[in-house]
Structures are given as C-alpha cells and as structure tokens.
Design a protein around this nucleic acid. Structure first.
Lengths: 112, 112
DNA sequence: TTGTAATTTAATAGC
DNA sequence: GCTATTAAATTACT
C-alpha cells in the first residue's frame, strides 16, 4: 500500500508558464518522481478497438497485445493492464446481474 | 457546468403536491432508477467523527471502517468513499496553497 | 454557484 | 492472472 508521502507537486505552480505539452511532460516527470504512472487517457478510437478485440478474445496473448500496441501507439503494458481491468469489470457486472436475478426471484417467490 | 439537457424528471413538477418525506422517497426511487445512489447527507456529528479519525489516519483499514460504520450507523461503503473524497480534497488544498506560495515567491523575486 | 457524494477506470500491491 | 485498493477525473446533486 502506497502511503502517499506528499512532497507535493512543485510543478503545478509553474503550470501557466508552460505550453500544454511542456506541462504534460512536467506532470509525467513529477508523477514518476512520486512513484505513480500518470493516468493514461485512451482515445475513443483506442477504446473501440480494444473493446472489439475483447469481445472476441478477452485473454489476448503477448503476440496480439504487441500487435495492438503498435497499431494503437500504446505500450504493451498499458494494453495488458487494460484487459485485466476490463475482465474485472465484466466479472463485476456478471456478479451484479446475478444478484439482481436472485433478488427478483426472491421477491417473486414471496408473492406466490 | 451548464448542461441541463435532460429528458427531465416528471417528478419535479409534481413536487409541491407531496410531503417532504414523500418527495424524498420519490427522489430516491428516481435516483436508483437512473443508476445512481442517492446522495448521502452526513450529519454534523458524523462528519466531526470522520474528520477526527482522518486527522490521525487518512487510510483507515477495513477493520476501522467497519467499526466506524457501526458507531455512526452508516454503510462501510459510504465511509470508504468519504475517505477517498477527503484525501482528494486534502491533495487539492495542498496544491492550491503551494501554488499561492510559489506565486508569492515568484512575484517577490521579480521585485528584488 | 459551490462543495462534495458518487461513479468510472487506469494503476498499484499482494497473493 | 485475480482481487482489492488507490488516485485521477468526472458527473451530478444539494
């Protein structure tokens, strides 16, 4: 568990004095310094492609991931994590719908 | 910000025809229907206790959270979310005060 | 309008 | 690889 030490961002103060891309790289540098990778913001298109692959195969091997990485201009690691999180999300949604179904049946049974 | 497109609430126009508690439960039902938990309104006392714990430990483990949940008569989930949001708020305030400090120094340096 | 509870999801830690 | 959390960013309500 990362106990966030908080030597907080010396960059933010200068933010207005830099261009957008300079700010971004400053931010990245600082985030790394603080020990956490800056959150990747996938584009709509990247997500679309990833979702399409996921529908067919939610466990793509290293070869497919590398291929995606090239095509989407992302690091392979980002893609691996994306699929991990996506599988977790799918699992949660399954759990939830199961729960709702059980609940529905429970209520229905009470009325019979 | 602005964004009030909404196929909006058939409830709101009837609001005046219902008692406060009827309005509240209507609202809750609508929130659930829309897939969002109705906003919890913490009491002054609950906030006070949470703030006191936060001062000592802003990353309470599951055991402490469960304990708080019992004592404050809240769901453990509400408490986890509260700490999450509280940490984000603290971080924002740190960023802001740092920004002000830097700005002040920057201006001072210009005058030297 | 502001503050903040709630949501979503990328990233991390531990197993 | 999975689970449980965290942080970041946003949404939306009071």
């Amino acid at each position: 568990m990362v106990d966030h030490p908080m030597p907080e961002e010396r960059a933010s103060k200068y933010e207005n004095y830099f261009s957008a891309s300079e700010r971004l790289s400053l931010k990245r540098e600082l985030s790394w310094y603080r020990g956490r990778r800056p959150r990747t913001a996938f584009t709509q298109n990247q997500i679309e492609v990833l979702e399409n692959v996921f529908r067919v195969n939610c466990y793509p091997g290293i070869d497919i991931r590398e291929d995606l990485a090239r095509k989407l201009n992302l690091e392979e690691d980002r893609i691996q994590i994306w699929f991990q999180n996506r599988r977790a999300k799918l699992k949660r949604s399954h759990r939830e719908s199961q729960f709702l179904m059980v609940k529905k049946n429970f209520n229905t049974n009470l009325l019979e």
